[in-house]
Nucleic acid binder design. Structure first.
Lengths: 191, 191
DNA sequence: GGCTCGATGCTAGCACCGCTAGACAATAGA
DNA sequence: TCTATTGTCTAGCGGTGCTAGCATCGAGCC
């Protein structure tokens, strides 16, 4: 029996190794550099081993993304918990979100830009995604129309996401990011 | 002399054929399906012919995107010109923008999501891009802080772009798009 | 302790990708 | 008509994600 347990343990460890290696590779050289060959070489196994753990590359991206949602939740919660409530909390939330994206560009891509196969806004949506949405919702719910808090959060989130992606792609100059963020918060949470 | 002119004419025509075929192929089956082999087969030439017109695939995407910016400008201008000024003009603008993205998904990708090599927010930015930005700016400028109209437009645009991309990727449910749009306009142009 | 057999990871290869070198044919101009 | 140039093609390079089928290794049974 114990042999089987050991094998399962080793298998789980290798599973984590694949995910963390993919993430490191992506963060270091971009997702284009994360090929099955390079990934296999890094973990010192042959390519087909990857397919014993994941259906394909998309599922590996999804596994990395799932890590990201857990970390994003933590980042948002701590940023809001530290400061005062109300409008300043929303500003802190926005800064934490864009900061997270700037600090973990490849991770952010896996979560929101690449095809990761994860179901959003669905009954099958994994818990980490729901929790991240919750972390976004809580500081905002006071400022939304009471009938439609979800709609408000979705729209605010979309605005943040738009700023992140357009800035990262060089479509918006990076130097004015804090100003755009302040403008956004000012419009969504007037005082 | 005339021979040379004819050749140039034929060359220009083939140039346009490549761009329009790439666009049709992308709109029909997505940009992943636009491979140099398929594109060459469609225009009934061999692959290397494409490289006599464009440096590579990225430049073809850029050519398609440039068409898109011209069309987007027209779409935004007509939408605003038809209706009344003020707040309703902004709502019309927002609807026209998201409508354009929904009607021409592949074109929108070429313009804003894919790497098309076009320089944004730069002294080398091509005229069609500047004009599209202008079409976005004009109806908004009255509602912005007078010192920073550009910042206001950029942020509003980013919000629209975020809504478009998250909806298209299935990260936001598509059915509530008009409601999110109304909420966005309401927050950016309060009255 | 030796043997069998199933699990496991490997090599090799498929069809496709973007891109290009070099052979060849068509054609314009002398 | 001959030559030089222009234009287009075939073939191929090094890469991609993914998989069939073989070989090896080790766990469990006699």
């Amino acid at each position: 029996m114990s042999v089987r347990e050991r094998k399962e343990r080793e298998r789980a460890q290798r599973h984590r190794l694949i995910v963390s290696t993919a993430r490191e590779l992506a963060e270091a050289h971009g997702w284009d550099a994360v090929t099955t060959r390079r990934l296999a070489e890094q973990i010192e196994y042959s390519q087909p081993v990857l397919y014993g753990h994941f259906r394909g590359k998309k599922e590996i991206v999804g596994a990395v993304a799932l890590e990201g949602f857990a970390e994003l939740t933590t980042a948002l919660r701590t940023a809001v918990a530290e400061g005062p409530a109300g409008r300043e909390a929303v500003a802190a939330l926005a800064r934490a979100y864009t900061g997270f994206a700037a600090d973990n560009p490849a991770l952010y891509d896996a979560m929101f830009s690449l095809d990761n196969g994860l179901p959003f806004a669905d009954e099958a949506t994994p818990a980490p995604l729901r929790e991240a949405f919750g972390a976004l919702l809580d500081p905002l719910v006071d400022h939304a129309h009471p009938d439609e808090p979800g709609l408000f959060v979705e729209t605010f989130w979309a605005a943040l996401h738009g700023l992140v992606t357009l800035t990262r792609a060089g479509r918006l100059p990076a130097d004015r990011v804090p100003d755009r963020l302040a403008l956004l918060v000012g419009r969504f949470v007037p005082k």
